[in-house]
Amino acid sequence: METSAAGLEKAIKAIKIGLSLPEQDHLHRELEELLGWLEPLLAFNTGETEPLLFGHEAVNVLREDHPQEGRLAELQEAAPNFAGGFYLVPKIMD
């Protein structure tokens, strides 16, 4: 199993966030604290209990299948940059 430091590095990469080295060190100390805090969870005997996946008995909400105008214009306004039907990202090729 990989170390908590290696796992943390991967996690930071996974969420795509820029952190300074002191911040990463601080998070590593906090992660160690967290893993200690969670020890009783690992030690707890859950026997044959099946994991709960949904806290409620949600069912599919079926709508009538007909074309709707939608709210694209409103959603475009909420995005930082939007043009020609696309969300804009910075250029990555010259």
Partner: peptide, 15 residues
């Protein structure tokens, strides 16, 4: 940040 990063850690293959 703390919760997102630790969440990613706890969902990793090992954890």
């Amino acid at each position: 940040r703390r919760r997102s990063i630790f969440g990613a850690f706890l969902l990793s293959k090992d954890n």
